[in-house]
Design a binder for these strands. Structure first.
Lengths: 196, 196
DNA sequence: ATTTGCTGCTAACGTTTGTTAGTGTATTTT
DNA sequence: AAAATACACTAACAAACGTTAGCAGCAAAT
């Protein structure tokens, strides 16, 4: 069939991972076969194994790539000296732009993590749980400081995160407003939903 | 193995569908095998086919059950003589209680519809699209009447619906507030996010 | 120019998949 | 009690799956 094309910044391995993310998003992890992936990459199925260890490794890479980005970000935000509501807004904007930019990856990591194998599965679940707790902590802090209305913080987190993951249907839709407008609308609705 | 237990209100077929919904939710449609389902129902895999036509029929039933319930509901709400914001709140409450009560079904219909086959796939997609449009129309009406702040209606719909589907993680969580509280919190955040 | 490693190929493996055929037995209907 | 229907079983199928083994050619390093 020929070899996998690379430019200088992208290794063959990375090409495979990118195409895998796109396929996993479109059809789901379990419904994507290595032969399909190989087809799209432009190679026979067996050849993929020169670059990766297994199908599940692909999912691992995708999921932890995303998770690590978010963990980095929240650490940065926690350290900043701004109000709680501003922190939440910043975090929200990061999630929105991140979703628009790394759509496939984020989508897969959100919807397909069930198919991770141990110990990765347990690992990611813990990471996600602590991530949500850290956001909830920011909100609770904001409530204490009377910047944020008195609500159940975990519920607020749940709303925020899932609202963002809804960008999926924006991505698909035809009558698309542009990314920046989308961001402003989401921030407007969600932030004023929290403000006291 | 023995036969499928039924009480008087639930047919054997319905037992299978319920257990299927639970399994599809937990492992995903593609990752659930008919042999697993049979095990849980308490029967050999082949015996399932005395009650259903195929694995995909199970998914069809689950998805369209949910879709039909929603379509019924929005027609009712449209007909009521209350303000737009009240309509949105009512709809929101319906979604929340529906998600809490028929969790497996709704979850599966939300996340696994990709695996429907034609013509059911196209059918459901259209239904979902028109459903979202009808909600957006209510919101736009509210904007015109100055009950709702000026925002992009499709974006608001997207936030609402996906926020509700986030109840999934509430369902899983340990430190659970009760269903009624959850509902009040969600309504509070989302409705005041819309109000002018 | 020769070696070395990278990357592709074909062929095949052992499993698991959804589903059908055919048969026997319990339950319901007549 | 006899006949008909409902339902479960065993056995087997063809197809699809992820992955490995073994080999050939091209690219980069010596």
């Amino acid at each position: 069939m020929g070899r996998i094309k690379t430019n200088d910044t992208t290794s063959r391995r990375e090409v495979i991972i990118e195409k895998a993310a796109a396929l996993f998003k479109e059809k789901g992890f379990k419904a994507t076969s290595m032969r399909e992936l190989a087809d799209i990459v432009g190679v026979e199925a067996a050849s993929l194994y020169n670059h990766i260890k297994s199908k599940n490794e692909l999912l691992n890479i995708i999921c932890f790539d995303v998770a690590n980005r978010y963990m980095q970000m929240i650490s940065d935000i926690e350290a900043e000296k701004i109000s709680s509501l501003e922190k939440i807004e910043k975090l929200l904007r990061f999630h929105i732009t991140g979703m628009v930019k790394h759509f496939d990856e984020v989508y897969v990591s959100d919807r397909e993590w069930k198919h991770l194998e141990e110990p990765y599965l347990a690992n990611l679940q813990t990471q996600r749980r602590t991530y949500r707790r850290r956001i909830a902590a920011i909100i609770e802090d904001g409530i204490k400081k009377k910047e944020i209305k008195k609500i159940d913080a975990p519920t607020a987190v749940l709303i925020m995160l899932h609202a963002v993951s809804g960008i999926e249907s924006w991505h698909r839709s035809k009558e698309k407003i542009n990314g920046k407008e989308l961001e402003e609308n989401m921030v407007s609705i969600l932030v004023s939903g929290l403000r006291k």
